[in-house]
Protein backbone atom coordinates (compact mmCIF):
# COMPACT_ATOMS: atom_id res chain seq x y z
CA UNK A 1 0.00 0.00 0.00
CA UNK A 2 1.41 3.41 -0.95
CA UNK A 3 1.93 6.22 1.52
CA UNK A 4 -0.99 8.02 -0.15
CA UNK A 5 -3.27 5.00 0.30
CA UNK A 6 -2.25 4.67 3.93
CA UNK A 7 -3.13 8.32 4.50
CA UNK A 8 -6.55 7.73 2.94
CA UNK A 9 -7.22 5.13 5.63
CA UNK A 10 -6.35 7.49 8.46
CA UNK A 11 -8.41 10.00 10.34
CA UNK A 12 -7.51 12.69 12.85
CA UNK A 13 -9.65 13.17 15.96
CA UNK A 14 -9.54 14.81 19.37
CA UNK A 15 -11.35 13.68 22.51
CA UNK A 16 -12.69 16.58 24.60
CA UNK A 17 -13.48 16.18 28.32
CA UNK A 18 -13.72 18.43 31.38
CA UNK A 19 -10.52 16.79 32.66
CA UNK A 20 -8.60 17.84 29.55
CA UNK A 21 -8.28 16.82 25.93
CA UNK A 22 -6.58 13.99 24.10
CA UNK A 23 -4.31 14.96 22.54
CA UNK A 24 -3.77 18.17 24.49
CA UNK A 25 -3.20 20.16 21.32
CA UNK A 26 -4.04 19.39 17.72
CA UNK A 27 -5.37 15.99 16.70
CA UNK A 28 -4.22 12.38 16.80
CA UNK A 29 -4.24 10.13 13.78
CA UNK A 30 -6.01 6.76 13.86
CA UNK A 31 -7.01 4.17 11.31
CA UNK A 32 -10.59 4.66 10.12
CA UNK A 33 -11.13 1.00 11.05
CA UNK A 34 -10.07 1.58 14.66
CA UNK A 35 -12.90 1.05 17.09
CA UNK A 36 -13.97 4.19 18.89
CA UNK A 37 -13.66 2.37 22.23
CA UNK A 38 -9.93 1.88 21.57
CA UNK A 39 -9.51 5.60 21.02
CA UNK A 40 -11.51 6.38 24.17
CA UNK A 41 -9.47 3.90 26.19
CA UNK A 42 -6.28 5.58 25.07
CA UNK A 43 -7.77 8.96 25.99
CA UNK A 44 -8.77 7.65 29.44
CA UNK A 45 -5.25 6.40 30.08
CA UNK A 46 -3.72 9.67 28.94
CA UNK A 47 -6.12 11.78 31.03
CA UNK A 48 -6.02 9.37 34.01
CA UNK A 49 -9.78 8.82 33.91
CA UNK A 50 -11.27 5.80 35.66
CA UNK A 51 -14.64 4.05 35.61
CA UNK A 52 -15.60 5.53 32.27
CA UNK A 53 -17.69 2.53 31.18
CA UNK A 54 -20.91 4.56 31.25
CA UNK A 55 -19.55 7.73 29.71
CA UNK A 56 -21.10 8.91 26.46
CA UNK A 57 -19.20 10.05 23.38
CA UNK A 58 -20.98 12.58 21.23
CA UNK A 59 -20.36 14.46 18.03
CA UNK A 60 -22.64 17.49 18.08
CA UNK A 61 -26.11 16.14 18.84
CA UNK A 62 -25.24 12.62 17.73
CA UNK A 63 -24.39 9.93 20.27
CA UNK A 64 -21.60 7.66 19.05
CA UNK A 65 -21.28 3.91 19.45
CA UNK A 66 -17.94 2.96 21.03
CA UNK A 67 -18.22 -0.62 19.75
CA UNK A 68 -18.12 0.57 16.13
CA UNK A 69 -15.16 1.83 14.13
CA UNK A 70 -14.50 5.50 13.52
CA UNK A 71 -15.68 4.98 9.96
CA UNK A 72 -18.87 3.17 10.96
CA UNK A 73 -19.60 6.00 13.39
CA UNK A 74 -19.35 8.37 10.40
CA UNK A 75 -16.80 10.53 12.14
CA UNK A 76 -15.30 13.09 9.75
CA UNK A 77 -11.61 13.96 9.70
CA UNK A 78 -10.50 16.47 12.36
CA UNK A 79 -13.52 15.86 14.58
CA UNK A 80 -13.65 16.96 18.20
CA UNK A 81 -15.51 14.25 20.09
CA UNK A 82 -17.13 15.28 23.36
CA UNK A 83 -16.90 12.58 26.04
CA UNK A 84 -18.68 12.92 29.38
CA UNK A 85 -20.27 10.95 32.21
CA UNK A 86 -23.89 9.97 31.63
CA UNK A 87 -26.73 10.32 34.07
CA UNK A 88 -29.24 7.48 33.84
CA UNK A 89 -32.24 8.69 35.80
CA UNK A 90 -33.62 10.94 38.47
CA UNK A 91 -34.95 10.23 41.91
CA UNK A 92 -38.50 9.01 42.07
CA UNK A 93 -38.21 9.16 45.85
CA UNK A 94 -38.03 12.94 45.70
CA UNK A 95 -41.69 13.06 44.88
CA UNK A 96 -42.81 10.33 47.28
CA UNK A 97 -45.30 11.67 49.78
Amino acid sequence: MSEHDQHEHKIEVKIVTTAGNFPETGFKEFSRQEKLETVLKEAAEHLKLHNTENWIARLGDRQLNPALSLEANQIPDKSKISWAPSEPGGGELCTRK
Binding site: T17, T18, A19, T52, A84, P85, E87, G90
Partner: peptide, 28 residues
Protein backbone atom coordinates in the same frame (compact mmCIF):
# COMPACT_ATOMS: atom_id res chain seq x y z
CA UNK B 1 -35.74 11.01 50.87
CA UNK B 2 -32.03 10.76 50.10
CA UNK B 3 -30.27 11.54 53.39
CA UNK B 4 -28.98 7.97 53.50
CA UNK B 5 -27.33 8.32 50.06
CA UNK B 6 -24.36 10.29 51.29
CA UNK B 7 -22.16 12.48 49.13
CA UNK B 8 -19.27 10.49 50.60
CA UNK B 9 -20.41 7.61 48.37
CA UNK B 10 -19.66 9.69 45.28
CA UNK B 11 -17.05 12.35 45.90
CA UNK B 12 -14.06 10.18 44.98
CA UNK B 13 -15.74 8.56 41.98
CA UNK B 14 -14.70 9.45 38.47
CA UNK B 15 -17.13 11.95 36.96
CA UNK B 16 -17.97 13.60 40.27
CA UNK B 17 -15.27 16.23 40.17
CA UNK B 18 -16.40 19.80 39.49
CA UNK B 19 -16.32 19.45 35.72
CA UNK B 20 -18.00 16.05 35.87
CA UNK B 21 -20.92 17.37 37.90
CA UNK B 22 -21.39 20.38 35.62
CA UNK B 23 -21.29 17.99 32.63
CA UNK B 24 -23.89 15.67 34.16
CA UNK B 25 -26.26 18.51 34.96
CA UNK B 26 -25.97 20.12 31.54
CA UNK B 27 -26.41 16.81 29.71
CA UNK B 28 -29.58 16.08 31.70
Amino acid sequence: SHISDSWENYKKQSGFDLGGIVSRVTEV
